[in-house]
Simulated assay, not measured.
Amino acid sequence: MIAVIQRVSEASVTIEGHVKGQIQQGFLVLLGVTHTDTNEDLEWLAKKIIGLRVFSDADGKMNLDLKSVEGNILLISQFTLYANTKKGNRPSFIEAARPEVAIPLYEQMIQRLSAELGQPIQTGEFGADMKVSLLNDGPVTIIIDSKNKV
């Protein structure tokens, strides 16, 4: 799994003109799933996301995690994180998991992040044409790949 985590002051996702999810301070997480991902990848990544200490403390140092600032998460599925651009100009998405693999893992990630955070998170809709809006705070953008744990 690949997660692109953006620290935001606010973020929202709109589908067909209707706001599906929105948050104030917290993380916008773009999640890509590949066909070799497992529950172990999911558990590890969820803990990393919740534990990221990228919010400023009283001294202005990035030292606080999401819970410390009472932040929230907007989770968006994004198969394009597995784009392969080595050949030509049209990306290949062969490494992105097919929906029968990706949807259950995406839904489990929603549950895991909600449990770790101790509150429901906001989401997009798997496979929908979504319009994502955000105000990146910092900017702070972190990329985590569960295949690079070591």
Score class of each variant (00 low, 15 high):
I5S: 07
Q6A: 00
R7A: 03
R7H: 01
V8K: 01
A11V: 08
A11T: 07
S12H: 11
V13N: 07
V13R: 04
I15T: 10
E16N: 14
E16P: 01
H18Q: 13
H18T: 07
V19F: 09
V19I: 15
G21H: 02
G21V: 03
G21L: 01
I23G: 01
Q24W: 08
Q24T: 13
Q24V: 10
G26L: 03
G26P: 05
L30S: 09
L30Y: 12
L30T: 00
L31I: 03
L31V: 06
G32P: 08
H35K: 11
T36Y: 11
D37L: 10
D41K: 07
D41T: 06
L45T: 09
L45R: 02
L45W: 01
A46C: 14
A46K: 03
K48R: 15
I49K: 03
G51D: 15
G51H: 08
L52N: 09
R53P: 04
V54N: 09
F55T: 01
F55E: 08
F55D: 02
S56D: 15
A58D: 14
D59Y: 12
D59L: 13
D59V: 03
G60Y: 10
G60L: 09
K61N: 14
N63C: 01
D65K: 05
L66K: 05
K67Q: 12
K67Y: 06
S68Q: 15
S68W: 00
V69R: 11
N72F: 00
L75I: 02
L75W: 06
S77I: 01
Q78M: 06
F79V: 00
F79Q: 09
T80N: 08
T80A: 08
L81S: 00
Y82D: 09
Y82F: 15
Y82H: 15
A83H: 07
K86R: 15
K86M: 14
K86N: 14
K87Q: 14
G88K: 04
G88W: 05
N89C: 01
R90T: 15
P91W: 06
S92G: 06
I94D: 14
E95Y: 10
A97F: 10
R98E: 15
E100S: 02
V101G: 00
A102H: 07
I103H: 00
L105V: 10
Y106A: 07
E107T: 04
M109V: 04
M109S: 04
I110H: 01
R112Y: 09
L113H: 06
L113V: 05
S114M: 00
A115D: 12
E116C: 09
L117K: 07
G118Y: 05
G118Q: 05
G118T: 02
Q119P: 02
Q119K: 15
I121N: 03
I121F: 08
T123N: 01
G124C: 05
F126H: 00
A128Q: 14
D129S: 12
D129F: 12
D129C: 03
D129N: 11
D129T: 11
D129H: 12
M130Y: 11
M130D: 11
M130Q: 12
L134G: 02
D137S: 13
D137Q: 14
V140S: 03
T141V: 06
T141R: 05
I142D: 05
I143L: 15
I144A: 05
I144L: 15
I144W: 12
S146D: 10
K147I: 04
K147N: 13
N148T: 12
V150L: 14
